[in-house]
Design a protein around this nucleic acid. Structure first.
Lengths: 236, 236
DNA sequence: CCTTCACCGACTATCGATAATCGGTTACGT
DNA sequence: ACGTAACCGATTATCGATAGTCGGTGAAGG
């Protein structure tokens, strides 16, 4: 584990941030260390060690761990301890299928409620096109995530949003783009098509489009971890 | 707050349940009390009071509250306290929509892979019928959850399973049954129908059935808190 | 009468210590 | 040598006590 030692509350440095509770600060720190890879998947997080490391008692650490658990970044077994989840355990492939489920529903809800933010979606597609021209994969990924988040938001279902966010789309999207060598222009095109079907107002078609849009990615080659799933997974 | 006073850990009463940590026991108790309405929306949950009430220290109570927060049943503002959400009932409603999304997909995956555990599903339906005859709502709820869990398991998608479990179906199901005054016989019948459509092998029909099955509950009257949702939410 | 500020009581956030439990290890009986 | 039971070290779950913060209250000032 790292050597980070927040020996000082650094009150002067973070006059505003110190408003956060210790637990929150510890949580954020752990998130960074996990996603950055400093803390390896499968690694055990010992409460007392962390407490010593951060210079606090066990209590705030426990709380931080609980929040991480809610975020699905770690796994806690009573009286056993908490462990960093294996990223492979949640393959990219799987995430796309779940995204498909949630986003299809989000599309349905948003269209039924007439709350689809068409303008915002157009803007994101535009951003994707620009990113494609500039060959900026990162920007394209961001726009794509924003596009889908707009839809999920428009569904006005907090729990749906929560579930969606829990998938940590951001963290996975960029990976896919690189691993699957997706053409940036194709991304822009795909989203434009999805948007068009939504604008057309045909509920079932749009929903199916939303679903297939994601299932498509699930079927792309990713990496060594993603065990090949049967082709049949592509919806008929 | 209510008058409930578990002055006794009731160790003799719950020899098995004691395997759970105090925090978990407290959480379950609070869930019941909140969804049953004993604890009103907006009500403040004072950690020290609860600790005294349950005969524990503040720590397990805090943990229970954190879990409730993750479940979106309460809201915590640092150094302010935690309050029961006003949207508990709506959240219940929302959960059915999300369940619908996930279970529809689970059904699709399981059917495509040919891994639907038909026998197990039949057994659960049978259990529901028995529960209906015995007028045992608790048993019916358990069978229903088991039924759907079988399907989700059969999809063989870890992340889907994870997302589904995160909805805390158990905690919510019993509530709906009471709150919505669902007829136990209807439950058995609904599941039997869903099962039949799966057995028939018609993918799209079964999927739609799986979805409508849940959306139906989302549309049931719950209580005064759940603001009515537009009928249009019922899928067309 | 309305706004400002120090003070007060109520609670939360955090601490340090203790009780309990888990997995592994060692000693023992066969 | 093998299976079983008591023992151990490590770590979590829980406790009881304390420090600090928040909202409200009432006096002081305009």
């Amino acid at each position: 584990m790292g050597a980070m030692t927040p020996d000082e509350p650094a009150a002067a440095v973070t006059p505003l941030v110190t408003r956060m509770t210790l637990a929150q600060q510890i949580r954020e720190s752990l998130v960074v260390r996990i996603v950055s890879g400093e803390i390896q998947p499968g690694e055990r997080l010992v409460e007392t060690k962390l407490a010593a490391m951060y210079g606090t008692s066990q209590a705030p650490v426990r709380e931080a761990l609980r929040e991480l658990e809610a975020m699905r970044m770690v796994e806690t077994r009573p009286r056993r301890g908490t462990f960093v989840r294996h990223f492979v355990q949640q393959t990219l492939r799987e995430s796309y299928v779940v995204r498909a489920a949630l986003e299809e529903t989000a599309t349905r809800l948003a269209m039924l409620a007439g709350t689809v933010p068409v303008e915002a979606l157009r803007a994101e597609v535009k951003a994707m096109r620009a990113a494609a021209r500039a060959d900026d994969a990162s920007a394209a990924a961001r726009a794509s995530v924003a596009f889908h988040r707009h839809i999920v938001d428009a569904a006005h279902n907090e729990l749906l949003k929560l579930s969606w966010e829990a998938l940590q789309i951001e963290a996975r999207t960029s990976v896919t783009m690189v691993a699957a060598e997706v053409k940036l222009k194709d991304i822009a095109r795909d989203h434009a098509e999805l948007l068009r079907s939504i604008e057309d107002g045909d509920l079932e078609t749009a929903c199916k489009h939303a679903r297939d849009h994601q299932w498509h990615y699930a079927d792309l080659p990713h990496d060594a971890h993603g065990r090949a799933r049967r082709r049949a997974m592509m919806s008929g």
